[in-house]
Structures are given as structure tokens and as C-alpha cells.
Design a protein around this nucleic acid. Structure first.
Lengths: 159, 159
DNA sequence: TATTGTTATACTCTATAACTATA
DNA sequence: TATAGTTATAGAGTATAACAATA
């Protein structure tokens, strides 16, 4: 189903960061969604829930900028998640234009149920890369994105 | 517009290859499309044209597998490109189920007009990465994807 | 005036299934 | 029976612009 030995000449596309990232991303998520029961949730929803979980009361717009989701789309997704009872939105008194997002208990337990599968798969599905190469890849992607490096908790690194 | 100093805790998402690839891919294409006049064409069309250009007479299904585009979607895109007069499809006598794709002269010149902008931007827009790091990133992505390494032509490398 | 979020629209992409014609 | 492509439909994501409320 993927790219067997079709032996296609990709030309300069195989030197294009954009297209390599595009293909790699598709593969990564297809691996992620392969066996697990994540089918109930979309990638957008899951990532939004995760970010809110780590940053309770975060502004909706900040979540959108972080995840590169446009404001119009954020509104739709957030309302959808809210309708499922997984998060609550409040208006902060300091800026009554904004919307602050927090997970409900149901949202927290939903995330606790589904997110570990993501983390687990990540380790198992790095293709032909050695663990060391996979780490280098992650580090370079973070640098490319301007994300500060070991943002994982100290406990994670120690384990 | 992007991710300034919002200082968001991404938790284990910053260790997730899938999500890092997702964010990086969005950034890469937004940089690619930033200044240039590529707005006429979609990413799908451009990549399909490029692959056909490098592999004249290639089967439609092989293009789809290579670019991770589903068959149903391939049909729609290819018909669209064909309607613009940029490619022709023929039925190979050896297998009359298949569709072989070749660029028209208009298709070739269209690609010659637009593809160099992609290559040029690639070099200029590698974020905070050093050229060496960008090369490493490309190499790791190719390995992750199972794409053989220096598939660029010798002439390209020499120039 | 600028910003935050909302609403609405249109298009691209993805996923799925039923269908045809060939092999 | 399996494969290559087509058709149709539904949902997810993206892009854009006009709008209200607030700063």
C-alpha cells in the first residue's frame, strides 16, 4: 500500500524538505492510527486536548497559533469538543474578548485513556531509523520549529 | 502569526515524531508558498506533475502510491490536470486496465516555470537550521521513508 | 484602530464503498 | 478472484472574508 519497490525517480523532490516532511507526516500518522482504537478522535482534537491539559486556562488563540490551526477552524473544533463535555470555556475578566480553555474531568480521563497509546506508538514506529537517529530527527525538527529542546519532564528523561 | 513566545508547554508532544512532522510540514509549505506565485497550483498537482516529468509513461497508481494519494483522489486530480491540457493519459496495450501518464508540452513548460521556485525556496527556508543540519534532516527523513539516498541527478549535484 | 473570536462559504484532502473493465 | 481505475458521498482540514464585541 505504501511505496514498495516501484522504483520511482523523485528528482529534486527527494531533496525538498517540504515534500519529505509531507510524506513522512502521512506515514507517521498512518502508523499511529494503524492498530489502536484512536479512530474515535481526530488528530486536531487530540492535540488540542493535550495542549490544554498541559496549560489549563490557555487562550484559544494561543492553542491555535501553537498547533497551526486557523482561528475559524479552532472555533469549530473547540465547540465540538465542548459539546462532548470534554472542556469548558470561560471569559477571563482581564480581557473579555478572549476565551480561556480548561479540561473537564471527563476531558482529563479521556486524554489519560487515549494519549498513552500515542506515546507508546511513537517509540515503536520509527521506521528504519535507529533510536539514536530518531532522537536526532526529533531534535532537528524542534530546532526547525523553534521549539525549546528538552521540554519533556525531567522524570521522562530519567526513565 | 506563528508561534512567537507564547511559551506553551507541549508536554510529550514535543517528543512525538508524528506531531513534530505535522507542525514542521505546515511551516515548510507556508514558507514555500509565502512570496512566490505558486498560488495557482496545489501541492498535489505540482508534485504529481513533477513525478510524471521524471517518469514519463508512469502508471497513475504508482504515482499515487509514491505520493500517498488515494486512488479515488488521484482520479479527480489527474482529470483536473488533464482538463488543463498539462498531461495526457493513454492505455498501455500490455495492461488495458491501467492508465499511463505523460506531460504535454504545456505541462513541461508549466513545470519548468514553477518548479525552480520550489527548489530555490528550499535552500533559503530552513529556519534556524544550519545547512549541514538541514542536510542531516533530509537524509533522516529519506531513511525514515525508505527512499534511496542521493536520487538527485549527478548534474544537479554538480551545479 | 487593532485584536479575539464567530459565522459562512468554498475548496482541498481523506476515507470508504460500490461499481466497471480488464487480468 | 484479484487488480486498476472510476464514481459518489461524507467528513476533516484549510483559506478567506465579513462581522460583533472588546481593547
Amino acid at each position: 500500500m505504501q511505496n514498495p519497490a516501484d522504483n520511482v525517480d523523485l528528482g529534486t523532490m527527494s531533496e525538498s524538505l517540504g515534500f519529505l516532511l509531507r510524506l513522512a507526516q502521512i506515514d507517521a500518522f498512518s502508523r499511529l492510527y494503524a492498530d489502536d482504537g484512536l479512530s474515535e478522535t481526530t488528530v486536531g482534537e487530540l492535540s488540542i486536548l493535550h495542549v490544554i491539559s498541559r496549560n489549563p486556562g490557555i487562550r484559544q488563540g494561543v492553542v491555535g497559533r501553537t498547533l497551526r490551526i486557523k482561528r475559524a477552524h479552532m472555533t469549530k473544533i473547540v465547540h465540538g469538543i465542548e459539546a462532548k463535555g470534554l472542556l469548558t470555556s470561560t471569559t477571563p475578566p482581564q480581557d473579555r474578548r478572549a476565551v480561556a480553555l480548561t479540561l473537564t474531568d471527563a476531558g482529563q480521563s479521556f486524554l489519560h485513556t487515549h494519549w498513552p497509546a500515542v506515546d507508546a506508538r511513537e517509540i515503536a514506529t520509527t521506521g528504519d531509523l535507529t533510536p539514536r537517529e530518531a532522537d536526532t530527527l526529533r531534535r532537528l525538527l524542534r530546532k526547525y520549529l523553534g521549539i525549546s529542546d528538552p521540554q519533556a519532564t525531567r522524570e521522562d528523561l530519567a526513565s
